[in-house]
Design a protein around this nucleic acid. Structure first.
Lengths: 203, 203
DNA sequence: CGCAAATATACGCGCCACGCAACTTTCCCT
DNA sequence: AGGGAAAGTTGCGTGGCGCGTATATTTGCG
């Protein structure tokens, strides 16, 4: 599992993904060629395609990884904890910056945030992010099914909870990057989760 | 709005979309070239690209249209109706086959259903369907905001409700096409909607 | 009936996903 | 430790696709 091979592979994948994000934020998606991303990491363009089958997939990979951590956290928590508390804790935990952030200190936070907004507006990106969401949702449904003793193949409950959690997550994230209110994710996310957990009666 | 021009355009778009679906169900996505779709409708390949920028988009268009009807139904219903009743009614209304179905009588329902399953398994398709979902979700959020007097730009409520409704819709649809239980959409959908509306406590 | 605008088509270019066949690196077993 | 198997990397080549541009054709409107 943690042989030299696997670790090197993951390092290359992360490097490619990160390079793709950085270049896209700097120049815009269409101005970045696959060749550029590969060159930035020091591999051949062909190798790039062994890791990611499109530019969008490389960029969305970072989001996918973070989303998958939600399900992983849920599995590794204390089994006795009430479901929704465990979910909220796992969701908050996923917000903590991973070890990859320290590699790229954002020197110009404002400019970078603007670039990210432009990046997320790309339709191709949007589709790939949603796909990542759905992959994570499947993992999450499996984890919830484990916890609640339901069957993800035939029961509605785990799927619905997983879908609702991702919905809450995405709504909070949207509102955050859109920056309407200045509230941080640590505030928005628990609020949306509480709302979907409690139900959504007309206010 | 309903000039000859517009209607012809919509007819061409629908024909292209439908041809794309039919050919894909018959042969599989990669075996269908854009040229084939254009030829089946009788327009040039370049014209095809004026309507849809990818094969996936053409296929997902039918799903998009149906999903958008949900928001439209919600707007055209009686304004006094309680929100969740209106939503449920609109969601069920959207299931009724549109006028386009009568044009293509499915001669072999079983074979066709199998083809649809294969089609939906394509990753590129999945991404496009999700994108369509999100477009519809935005419309739905706007409609809900109208009804409840909230602001879709800054309030969590309409976005969360819209996201939850689409989540319920998609979960029901997944379970239906996957065919685990033999229950029809008319049963699954109200159930998932009731669940997300009432909240999702641990069972 | 004729002009303006919108749409369809023809041509062409550059990018990109991917199969194939060598070559190199890592792993595992004795 | 060492050697063969397995996995990863790379170069080459190909076909399809997204799209810009220019031109022809059709529709809408006065």
């Amino acid at each position: 599992m943690s042989g030299l091979r696997e670790r090197k592979k993951e390092a290359t994948r992360a490097a490619l993904s990160w390079a793709a994000v950085r270049l896209t934020v700097e120049r815009g998606l269409s101005a970045v060629k696959v060749e550029d991303i590969a060159a930035a990491v020091g591999v051949s363009p062909r190798t790039y395609n062994n890791y990611f089958s499109s530019k969008a997939e490389a960029i969305a990979f970072r989001y996918l990884e973070r989303s998958l951590r939600l399900a992983a956290e849920l599995r590794h928590g204390p089994p006795g904890e009430p479901l929704w508390e465990a979910i909220t804790r796992a969701a908050l935990r996923q917000l903590e910056p991973g070890p990859e952030v320290e590699r790229m200190p954002p020197q110009e936070p404002d400019e970078w945030a603007a670039g990210v907004r432009v990046m997320l507006a790309e339709p191709a990106l949007e589709a790939e992010m949603l796909r990542a969401s759905k992959i994570a949702e499947k993992e999450l449904a499996a984890a919830i099914a484990d916890r609640t003793g339901t069957d993800p193949g035939s029961d509605l409950y785990p799927r619905l909870v997983a879908a609702s959690v991702m919905a809450a997550n995405n709504v909070a994230l949207e509102l955050f990057v859109q920056g309407g209110t200045g509230e941080p994710m640590e505030v928005l996310l628990p609020r949306t989760l509480r709302m979907v957990a409690a139900g959504l009666p007309t206010p």
